[in-house]
Nucleic acid binder design. Structure first.
Lengths: 254, 254
DNA sequence: CGGACTATTGATTTGCGTCAAAGATTGTGG
DNA sequence: CCACAATCTTTGACGCAAATCAATAGTCCG
């Protein structure tokens, strides 16, 4: 097991532990997961919609988008995944049907066999909730995505998305006022269900109001409160749990 | 345990078994889940967005919508749940943040304590995947919902939704050409991110083309192939698994 | 039978899409 | 290290799908 492999799994473990409580033994089991590293160029598709895979992809570095297509070829991004995310953890229990994955910028991925993930969950019953809970966090983000795309205007949609990413990159610690988000306006359009032209115009108004600016792939938030207000943003849905620590783990029941 | 309680759990068990393989003992454990029955009137909200609950709601009869709201009060339906669905199964591992639940028509619900669900999963490791997998089916539907709302025109959105419900009501057996769907055009608008006026006009064109008709709360599909074409509908995302049976269960690994 | 939703239709407006073309950046090979 | 091709951003003019506003007909139910 290479050093970078270990570092990557630690990243994943950190993510799980923000949301679930794991014993030392369980933590060790996560660190011992097998997998192999791959490098992806920007734009590269590495999981295809109707293809069944036997790995889940842990994002180690870079940025990836989950994409869906309509029958006429229109494109919709339904999620962004950042380092520490297991982008298609869901495929461990349901190998198909939830969209393709595409690298947005140059990306490093650790491919972890489904079998290893399922065995981990089965072998440590108390831990088995962790991946499930992780998937539910994703689902909560996705539900917000529907609201965003369905019922908000262009400016609000963009503000909301930029707020969300600021919180997620901050990883439950703080909101980042500046973060790398190496995305084109066309991809932003695919995420917000707009056209790139309209994204451009809407970003211009956000910039004019000194709320945010995107310069060469990094988002600079000039006025967090203002941006959150425009974006109708409330981070509650991104928080794993409001309940006390013990709720994150089902105490010995057997 | 009342008769209707048993019947309800059997409904849930049937749903799980479409998607997962369970042993006799595990099936028995599902049938033995505790819970209590409640009746809801049309329009009644019974799970609120920022409220933590300690039950998951199994829909026994009726129709429920999962709803989200924007800061300005606009409403977006992000899922429909039909009898057999555990509408907020996800809340067992993550009690908040995924939207409210509202009865669309008069509805019967069995409230099952989270603790019982989590204990079931922990006690029968091999079964623990079943609820997780079930949640992932939901997530797949939600991803399609984003694509639908984000990138399709009004007519296509409606056709897609009506196709989806036809398949789901048919429960993996057949596509129903007629089904009860007691929903108003305004609620249909909340689901498709349109206005009720535009829903009305779009339904009119579908009716004129003899594709579908909604008459007093029942959907009548006149031309399934035509409707599926207009709706760009491919049921693949609703299928639990294309792999052989054994894939639905992790064989004894311990 | 009357009151309250729900559906339908028309007239008008508007936010966003489409088309097009000119700059600005970035990356790459010689 | 520069040239230049490719990709991205920005701006303008114009069109359209869906929203909004408004009023009339069902339809359901006590």
């Amino acid at each position: 097991m290479s050093l970078s492999h270990q570092v990557s799994l630690q990243l994943f473990l950190d993510r799980l532990m923000e949301r679930s409580v794991l014993s030392d033994e369980e933590q060790q089991a996560v660190r011992a997961l097998p997998g192999h590293m791959i490098e992806l160029n920007a734009r590269q598709h590495f999981v295809h919609v109707h293809e069944e895979s036997s790995y889940s992809c842990l994002i180690v570095a870079g940025l990836v988008a989950r994409v869906g297509y309509t029958g006429t070829g229109a494109r919709q991004i339904t999620a962004f995944h950042i380092p520490g995310d297991m982008a298609d953890l869901h495929s461990a229990v349901r190998p198909i049907g939830i969209g393709g994955l595409q690298a947005v910028s140059r990306t490093t991925v650790l491919r972890v066999p489904h079998r290893a993930i399922r065995e981990l969950a089965a072998h440590y019953p108390a831990i088995s909730e962790a991946p499930w809970r992780d998937c539910m966090l994703d689902a909560a983000i996705l539900m917000q995505w529907v609201v965003n795309v369905g019922r908000r205007d262009a400016r609000t949609r963009l503000a909301h998305l930029l707020c969300e990413m600021a919180v997620r990159y901050g990883a439950d610690r703080q909101v980042l006022r500046t973060y790398r988000f190496p995305i084109t306006q066309e991809q932003l359009a695919d995420a917000t269900a707009l056209t790139s032209v309209h994204v451009n115009r809407s970003l211009k108004t956000l910039r004019a109001d000194r709320l945010v600016e995107i310069r060469s792939g990094t988002v600079e938030i000039g006025d967090w409160d203002g941006l959150a207000t425009v974006g109708e943003f409330d981070a509650a849905y991104l928080v794993a749990d409001t309940a006390p620590e013990r709720q994150k783990r089902l105490l010995a029941v057997m």
